[in-house]
């Protein structure tokens, strides 16, 4: 896979915009705009830290990037990747801050929440909308046909997955996709692709999981150690 020069990455410290300093600025701006257009306001309101992969970029570049981000409702964090704040260690404090974010967002807020290596998308993804994330993706809503979820880790959809999902997109064959209603148009795990059967099939009655077994994608009812979960 070709390396993407402009990518949003979720990290333990929040959303990070990774850019390739070898690019020329005009091309970079074009790519950033394309990314943000694809996301259609998805990242709006988020604070982003710029990651130049260690390269030194001219300050004008950073200004240009900041202007584009602000145009799309994002803000650029002043903090440089090198000067990370010490992380909170107390488990209680961590949980409290996570709860606070949820409270501030409210159930109708579409702003994604990044915690550790997982992004929480608190809305339905409609046709044409896409989430790609270096980590796990949890969607609290439906994933409609024509929309895409890409994750290098696992994908959990607390709703109907009718669109396209690609778990383990960087090659992780251990990745899985779980959904309350798993009826995707196409499912990809690592480098394997499977599609919905052409003949009409029954809608599953409970949550299911898709994973790789001996090189092919299998779908099974979602079970826990206490047995099958019925919804």
């Amino acid at each position: 896979m070709k390396a993407q020069e402009v990518i949003f990455k979720g990290t333990r410290d929040g959303l990070r915009l990774v850019i390739d300093a070898d690019e020329n600025i005009e091309e970079l701006k074009g790519k950033l705009r394309r990314r943000l257009n694809e996301a259609e306001g998805f990242y709006s309101g988020a604070r982003v830290r710029l990651d130049t992969r260690g390269a030194v970029v001219p300050p004008e570049w950073i200004e240009e990037v900041r202007m584009i981000l602000e145009e799309y409702g994002l803000s650029l964090s002043e903090e440089k990747p090198g000067q990370r704040r010490p992380r909170q260690h107390a488990a209680g404090a961590g949980r409290a801050s996570a709860k606070k974010v949820l409270d501030d967002g409210g159930p109708e807020s579409g702003e994604p929440i990044v915690r550790g290596d997982t992004i929480l998308v608190r809305r339905t993804l409609r046709s044409g909308q896409a989430v790609s994330f270096d980590g796990n993706v949890v969607v609290m809503g439906d994933v409609n046909p024509g929309s895409e979820v890409l994750a290098t880790g696992d994908i959990v959809v607390f709703g109907s997955l009718r669109g396209m999902a690609h778990a383990g997109s960087a090659g992780n064959a251990e990745a899985c996709v779980v959904a309350l209603r798993l009826i995707p148009t196409q499912l990809r795990i690592a480098d394997k692709i499977t599609r919905a059967p052409d003949d009409e099939t029954q809608v599953p009655q409970g949550p299911e999981v898709a994973y790789l077994r001996e090189g092919s994608i299998v779908i099974e009812p979602w079970t826990t150690h206490t047995g099958t979960v019925l919804v």
Partner: peptide, 14 residues
């Protein structure tokens, strides 16, 4: 219906 879904998403973004 598929196009309506796309439009609803775009309206929300706007």
């Amino acid at each position: 219906v598929r196009d309506a879904d796309r439009i609803i998403g775009m309206l929300e973004a706007e």
